[in-house]
């Protein structure tokens, strides 16, 4: 029974949501919207599980004095500081401390991590330039043509390269993306089908 009931729930909810796509009636829309709302609410409960795992791993590290355990204290301090100020009944997310945590810790860290992307993309471009196979060279050549066309320093250069770049983006690019997307569509449908029919049940774990 431990496995049958979940599989039954998957089958019923999956079948309902699949059929709902073809039923425009307001009643079916209502149930659809309810179910989406429900998954969001369940998600919030799941966050508690996440926080639990977080605290568990951090405290275990501190207790066992494993490498870099000191930083786990920082992580826990950040976590509990934010929770206390955020959930506290003296203002919640509008409170002075919560806003400061957000504006002076989260925002700059987020912006900086995002800006690192520019550096990593430079190193990735460098890596691409050391193409070591025929296929990698094809990728590189196409990348170079597009980069020449869209370089921010000089703007468009010569007519043949510009038109070749536009043509690559409009035609071979479109064809390959279409092939990938059709393949993905089939794969997704197959996987969804396996899940609904209970063939794919890894996510339920063992007994």
């Amino acid at each position: 029974m431990k496995k049958e009931i979940p599989l039954f729930i998957v089958f019923i909810t999956g079948l309902f949501m699949a059929v709902q796509f073809f039923v425009p009636h307001a009643k079916s829309e209502w149930v659809y919207e309810y179910m989406l709302d429900w998954t969001i609410i369940i998600g919030v409960f799941a966050l508690a599980l996440g926080i639990w795992s977080f605290v568990r791993v951090a405290t275990n590290k501190i207790r066992r004095k494993s490498e870099n355990w000191q930083y786990s204290i920082v992580a826990l301090a950040g976590l509990f500081g934010m929770i206390i100020f955020g959930l506290g009944f003296w203002g919640g997310v509008e409170s002075y401390m919560f806003r400061n945590f957000f504006n002076f810790v989260m925002v700059p860290l987020h912006a900086t991590m995002f800006s690192l992307l520019a550096f990593f993309i430079a190193s990735a471009a460098f890596r691409a330039f050391r193409a070591h196979s025929l296929l990698a060279s094809v990728l590189l050549l196409s990348a170079i043509i597009i980069m020449i066309r869209f370089n921010p320093f000089l703007g468009p250069l010569s007519e043949p390269i510009d038109s070749l770049a536009s043509w690559i983006l409009n035609f071979p690019n479109m064809a390959a993306k279409r092939a990938i997307v059709i393949g993905i569509g089939l794969g997704m449908v197959a996987t969804a089908l396996k899940v609904i029919l209970g063939i794919e049940r890894t996510y339920l774990g063992g007994d």
Partner: peptide
């Protein structure tokens, strides 16, 4: 299966499963 990210994996990783290959891998 995120088409825009496949090129980065192709460049930076040793092996990349492209789109549908990910679903087939199991």
């Amino acid at each position: 299966d995120e088409v825009t990210q496949i090129p980065f994996f192709v460049v930076a990783c040793d092996y990349t499963l492209i789109g549908e290959e990910l679903y087939a891998a199991s």
